[in-house]
Structures are given as C-alpha cells and as structure tokens.
C-alpha cells in the first residue's frame, strides 16, 4: 500500500508539472553555464539551471508551434537542419543546457544565427529552447509532443531516444 501511495504521489507530482500553467511568467534566468569545460586555475563545472518548461507538456507543444511560426524550421527543418545546423543530433556548438540554448536564440550566434532579442517574448524563448532540446530527447518523454500535426517525418519528440549531448567544434566553413 505504501508503495502504491508512493507511486501515486510521484505520479501526481509529475502530472502536476506536466499539466501546469503559469500565467505570470518571470522569465528564464540569464546564462550561467559556461560554454567550455576548461577552468583556468581549477574549478568545477556549474550545475545547469533546470528549465521549468521542459517537464511541461503545454510549454513544449507551444515551443513546437512557435518553432515553426518564427520560421526556425526554414533553417533547422524539423530538427535535421539545412541552412542552419541540425538540432536533433548530439553536437552543440554553443552549448546544450537550457540556458545556453535560450541564450543562442536571444543573442544570436556569429555564423548565421539571428538574434531574436526584443522580437520574441521571454516565456516563448523558454518554450522554444525547451522544444529544441526535446528534439534530441532531452525533455521528459511524458511531456514531449507525442505526434506531428504535419507531414510525418521523423519520430515524435516523445519517442526520440535521448542523445548524449556534447560541445562540438565550429563548422569548418567558419574557419577563415
């Protein structure tokens, strides 16, 4: 009985986050995670901030919708990339933590990623960043979108196997 209660309690907690709606978002924290593993003089890697959007089904589904509405799909397709890099793989040029992905969208990146500062509301940036991470299975499967509303291509985010993200090199074309 205790076990059942415990499972129930956990389920309720998870379900709460999955279905939670916040109407007064305070925005995501600014970047704290360095985009490197080197700490001169020694140091320990920061623990990344956990995104409050990632366990939330509504936020992820909003992120998916916004990813298309802001024309992210034009460059990154449905995660496989095109004009811009793939987002569903395990290679992250500018970091894979939620705050790093958020920051890439907010600030832009020098090899072609535009800055959306002042163009996309903060909560939406958080939702898009969470969705971007779900493309490589970083979001909880229980919350990630379970199907595509459009032409079927790759498996839905909820059935995407979690890839182990790594910081990768700049694309070779960026070398001058």
């Amino acid at each position: 009985m205790k076990v059942v209660m415990a499972i129930l309690a956990v389920s309720v907690l998870v379900a709460c986050e999955r279905e939670k709606r916040e109407f007064h978002q305070s925005g995501i924290v600014p970047q704290t995670t360095p985009v490197t593993d080197l700490y001169p003089g020694g140091g320990t890697p920061h623990a990344a901030e956990r995104s409050k959007y990632e366990g939330n089904a509504y936020a992820l589904s909003q992120g998916k919708m916004l990813f298309s509405a802001y024309n992210c799909t034009g460059c990154h397709a449905n995660g496989g990339g095109g004009m811009g890099p793939a987002l569903m793989d395990d290679q992250w040029i500018y970091g894979y933590e939620p705050d790093q992905v958020y920051k890439s969208i907010l600030e832009g990146r020098p090899n072609g990623m535009p800055t959306f500062r002042g163009k996309i509301p903060d909560e939406q940036l958080g939702e898009i960043a969470a969705y971007v991470r779900s493309l490589s299975g970083q979001a909880p499967k229980a919350a990630a979108p379970g199907r595509d509303d459009h032409m079927s291509g790759k498996p839905a985010e909820s059935s995407t196997e979690k890839r182990s993200p790594k910081i990768s090199a700049l694309p070779p074309s960026a070398v001058q």
Binding site: A77, G79, G81, G82
Partner: peptide, 20 residues
C-alpha cells in the same frame, strides 16, 4: 550534398528542404 557539408541529420527527412 548539404547532408555532408552541413553535417545534417539523416533522421529528419525534411532536412535541407527535403533533400536529405
């Protein structure tokens, strides 16, 4: 050839405007 030159992911058939 963007799948090679741009390191695109073959898991998304719509990548590179569907060429992948």
């Amino acid at each position: 050839g963007a799948i090679v030159s741009g390191d695109l992911d073959a898991g998304d058939p719509t990548a590179a405007l569907g060429f992948v």
